[in-house]
Simulated assay, not measured.
Amino acid sequence: MIYFPYFRGRQFDLQALKALAQQDALPANLIPIIEPVRDIKALPQTVAAFVDHGHPLVVIANPTVSDYQLTQQKLHDWRPWQANPLLITGHVLGPTTTPADLQAPAGHRSLVIARQFDELMAAQAAGWLTPTQPTYLLAPPEARIRQQLDRPFVSLYDHAWFPDHEQTYANLEDGFFSDDWALADFYGYQGFSDYTIGGGHYSEHGYPSRAVTLHLTYFRGNQLRIHRFVSDDREDFKHPKEKFFQAVAKLAAWLPAQPAATQTPAAQQLAAYHAEQHFPGLGVVKRLSLAHHLQLMAAFMKARYPVN
């Protein structure tokens, strides 16, 4: 069983991934996927960190969000590492996909993402899909796909919830997040994939928020849940520092009562900002929230699906 956490390749995503690779904190069956969205130095640095530390990584060769794909001359290119078998080149199935995109060179693995049922069925009808190529095929866990697809695949699902303009995360501070591994075990999937706590929607500039919210995943039994620590001040878009202290105070009070598995190094660092009364910036907060999720899932994968 493999877990493929899917990232859009923003600065804080890449910083979290790079640090975990350098710490050798991820098991071999937790393989992140990066869809590049910006031509930034952190992208090749992250790829190099994974390769240098002997850990597999997927990079999408034809990203479908942002204008990264339209940039002809990349200042910070990740492709020099393509010859290394630890780097898995991924493709999003679409109108410009060719059969060659689904194949991997000898000694390499390939990964294809099929977001649309019709495109997936067209690729199968054309004979592009075999039991072994691509190595990994990601698709929504729909009954019609299970019924029509004659090869194993990896389930891809977006679990993130975003409140509309009439709501805030304070309306749902705690809730179910995922148990995709149970579905994968039941149906015999190769693995499971999600967009982590960041969600599948991508915006180049993001959206302003009246509240500062810290997101932490945690396990309750075999269920992965998410707890949201929301600032009390939600009247306007001002004072992010003060709002952060309101939110992190709630996290610092909640964390000590949780099991040891939930008290990851990243979560403890977030809680420490309350004791220190230090505001690191919201980018660092997002990086640590993602790092916590990966540290939590790394421990889960090691315990439930150990690999040599």
Rank of each mutant, 00 (worst) to 15 (best):
L138M: 11
A211N: 14
G188C: 08
S178W: 03
Y202S: 05
V37I: 11
V307P: 04
A16F: 03
T132V: 07
F192D: 02
N84P: 04
R8F: 05
Q73S: 11
D158M: 01
P56R: 12
T64M: 15
A21C: 01
L149K: 11
D194H: 03
R10G: 09
P63R: 00
Q22I: 10
H239Y: 09
T97Q: 13
Y68A: 06
L270C: 05
D232S: 13
Q116I: 08
A266R: 00
P63T: 04
T168R: 15
K18G: 08
L255G: 01
H293V: 05
Y6S: 13
R109T: 03
A25S: 11
F50M: 06
F244R: 01
A252Y: 00
P5C: 10
T98C: 12
S209V: 09
L137D: 09
A261I: 11
Y157R: 14
G191I: 00
H108T: 03
G90I: 00
Q15E: 08
P80D: 06
A61D: 12
S209Q: 14
H91E: 05
Y157Q: 10
P95R: 15
P152V: 04
H91I: 10
G200K: 01
I145A: 01
A211F: 08
G281F: 04
V248K: 00
Q258G: 01
F117H: 14
P259W: 11
G90F: 01
F162N: 12
F177W: 12
K250W: 05
A25L: 02
K18S: 10
F176C: 00
R79V: 05
P240R: 07
Q82C: 12
